[in-house]
Simulated assay, not measured.
Amino acid sequence: MENEVKNEMSFLDHLEELRWHLIRATLAVLIIGCVAFAMSGFIFDSIIFAPSRMNFPTYEFFCRIATYFGMTSDFCAEELPFTIQSRTMAGQFSADIWTSIWAGFILSFPYVLYEAWKFISPGLYEKERKSSKGFIVIASFLFFLGVLFGYYVVAPFSINFLGTYSVSDVVKNEFDLSSYISTLRASVIACGIIFELPIIIYFLTKIGLVTPEILKKYRKISLVVVLILSAVITPPDVASQVVVAIPVLFLYQISIYISGSVLRKEAKKEKRRKNA
C-alpha cells in the first residue's frame, strides 16, 4: 500500500519530500556543529592537534615496535619539526567554523543516513525493507570505523611523513592552519567513505549491476584503483599507501562474499516462487 501511495506522488511532491529530508539532515549537522563550536577548545587541543604531538598513541605504538627490534625511527623523536601558524586575519575563525561543521557531519552521520533511508525506503518492497533493516547501523559502524582508522593510522602517518620531510636544512616547515586541518580532514573523511564499500556493493548487487564474478574478474584492476585511492589520501610514501590498501582490499574480499550472499538469497526466493 505504501508503495502505491509513493508511486502516485507527482515529481514535485517527491522534490518537496526530498527537500524536507535534506532540511532535517542539514539542521542536525548544524545543531551538532554548534555544540562542537562551543567545545572548540577541547576539539582543537585534544583531537585536531593531538597527531602533531609525539605522545600521540600511534607514535608511541610504532616507537615501541622500532625499539623492540633495535631500529631508529622518526616515531621516537621528542617532537615533530614543524610549527602550525595562521597567516590570515580570519584564518582561525574560519578554521573553527568549518571544523565545527565537519564535526557536525561526522557525529550526525547516522541521522543523515536515517533521513536518506526514510526517503528511499517507501519505494522499496516490504521484503526489501526487511532485508535492509540493519542498513543504518551497519553503514554507521563502517563509517565510524573508517573515521577512527583515518584518525589513528592514516593521519599520523601523513603528518609524520610530511612534517619531517625536508629538502634542505635551510627550509623550515611552518604549515598554515588550514593546510594542516585539510590533511587531517581528508584522511578521516576519505577513510570513512571508503569503508562503506561493502554497503555500496550490497546495493549494486541488489539492483543487478554487480556480481561476484565481475568483482573477481576485475580484482587486479581493483587493486590498482585501491592503490591510486591510497595515494590520493596519503603522502607519497609506500608505507602509508600499503597501510590504507590492506584494509580496503580486505573490505573488497568481504564485498565479494556479500555480493554472493545476496545472489544466493535472491535465487532461493525465485525458487520458492516457482514452487509455490
Rank of each mutant, 00 (worst) to 15 (best):
M1R: 08
E4G: 00
V5P: 00
M9C: 00
S10R: 07
F11D: 00
D13E: 15
E16N: 08
E16S: 12
L18K: 09
L18V: 12
W20G: 14
L22D: 00
L22G: 06
I23K: 13
R24Q: 11
R24E: 01
T26G: 13
T26I: 11
V29S: 04
V29K: 04
V29D: 01
L30D: 06
I32C: 07
I32P: 05
C34E: 02
V35Q: 01
A38V: 01
M39Q: 12
S40G: 06
F44D: 05
I47A: 08
I47N: 02
I47P: 01
I48E: 02
A50D: 00
A50F: 03
A50T: 00
M54G: 08
F61M: 13
F62D: 01
C63M: 06
C63N: 13
T67M: 05
Y68A: 15
Y68R: 13
Y68I: 04
G70L: 06
M71C: 10
T72G: 08
D74N: 14
E78K: 14
E78S: 15
E78H: 14
L80H: 12
P81N: 10
T83H: 12
T83S: 15
I84G: 11
R87E: 14
D96F: 03
T99I: 13
I101Q: 10
W102L: 12
G104F: 01
G104T: 08
G104C: 05
F105V: 09
I106Q: 05
P110I: 01
